[in-house]
Simulated assay, not measured.
Amino acid sequence: MELISNFLQQSITFFAIMDPIGISAIALSLLSTNITKTQISQVAFKSTLTIIIAFFVVLISGEFILKVFGIDENSLKVMGGIILILMAISMVNGSTKEKTNNEEKDYAELAIIPIGIPIAFGTGLFTTIIIFKHEASTFLDLFSISLAFCLNALVFYFVLKNSIYIKKYLGVTGQNIITKLMGLIVGAIAVQFIISGIVHLAKGYMGA
C-alpha cells in the first residue's frame, strides 16, 4: 500500500510541475502558424523523448554531478529562474516571433530546446527527481519513480501532439492572449525560483 501511495504522490507531483496543458500553450507560441499535424507530432515525439532521456540522466547521475562540481540545488534555482524570466519577458512583449517557413530543422531544435529543456524539464523537475531518489530505499521505489514520470511523459506527448487543435479553436488572438498570460505566470514562477534560491544561499553562507 505504501508503494502505491508513493506512486500516486509522485505521479501527481510530476504532473503538477510539468503542467502539460500550460506547456502546450507555450509551445504554440513558439511554433509557426503554418505547422502541419505531422510536424507537430514530430515535435511532440522529440520533446517527449528529450524529457525522458533527461529524466534518466538526472536519476542516474544528477546527484553525482552536483557533488562533483559542488553545485547547490539553490544555485540551479537561481540560474533556472534567470532563463525563465528572459523567456517570460519575450512572451509578454510578443517578441517570440512566429516562423513563416516550415524548416524541419528549426522544429527539431525547438522540440529539444526550449520546449523539451527547460520549459518541460526545468530545475523544478531536476530537484524533485533528486529528492525522490534520496527517499528511495529499494529498486521498487526507483521503478515507481520511473513509471510515474514515464506515464506523465505519455500524457505530455498526447497533449502536445493535439495542441494544433487547441490553436485551431483559439485563433491568433486567443493564442496571443494565452501567450502573454503564460508569460506572466512563467515570470512569476521565475521570480519565485530566483528569490527562493538567493534566500537559501544567503542563509547557507551566513550560517557557515
Rank of each mutant, 00 (worst) to 15 (best):
I82N: 05
L28C: 10
M206V: 08
F69S: 04
L125D: 01
L142H: 07
K161Q: 14
K77F: 13
A108F: 12
Q192K: 07
L151D: 02
N102T: 14
I113N: 06
F139L: 09
I112N: 08
Q175E: 14
Q192G: 05
L3S: 10
M18N: 09
E109S: 10
G204S: 07
Q9M: 15
I177P: 04
K67C: 01
Q175K: 06
I52C: 02
D106V: 13
I89D: 10
I195G: 01
M91Y: 05
S196M: 00
G183T: 04
F193W: 07
G62T: 05
D141I: 03
S47R: 04
L66P: 07
I178H: 01
S163C: 12
F121D: 00
G22D: 11
Q192M: 07
V155K: 03
L151G: 00
K77E: 09
A27V: 06
S95G: 13
T100G: 15
V58E: 00
V92E: 09
K168A: 13
G187F: 06
F56P: 01
V172P: 13
N6C: 10
Y107F: 15
I177G: 03
F55H: 01
V186L: 15
H134K: 10
K97A: 11
D141R: 01
T100Q: 13
T128D: 04
A136S: 12
E103A: 08
S29Q: 08
D19R: 08
L28A: 14
C150Q: 01
N34H: 15
I65F: 10
S95Q: 14
K167Y: 10
L110H: 08
L147G: 01
S144G: 05
M206W: 06
I17H: 09
E135C: 03
A190T: 02
K37P: 05
G122L: 01
V186G: 06
I4P: 00
I60P: 01
G124T: 06
T179P: 00
A153I: 07
L84T: 02
I189Q: 03
V43L: 15
A202F: 11
V191G: 04
L142P: 02
L49S: 11
Y169G: 15
K97H: 12
I145G: 00
A44I: 10
T50E: 09
L201E: 07
S75N: 04
G171P: 09
P20W: 06
A108I: 14
P20K: 11
G197D: 00
I198C: 07
S196Y: 03
Q9F: 15
F158D: 11
Q42T: 13
I194K: 04
N162H: 14
I119F: 02
I117R: 00
N102V: 12
G62V: 07
I198P: 04
A16K: 11
G80T: 11
K37C: 09
L28P: 04
S95F: 11
G116M: 01
K99M: 08
I40G: 04
F56L: 03
I85R: 05
A88E: 03
I82P: 03
E63L: 09
A44E: 09
F121T: 00
K133M: 08
G204A: 03
F158E: 13
A25V: 15
I177W: 04
K161N: 14
M91E: 08
I113T: 12
I89M: 09
Q39V: 15
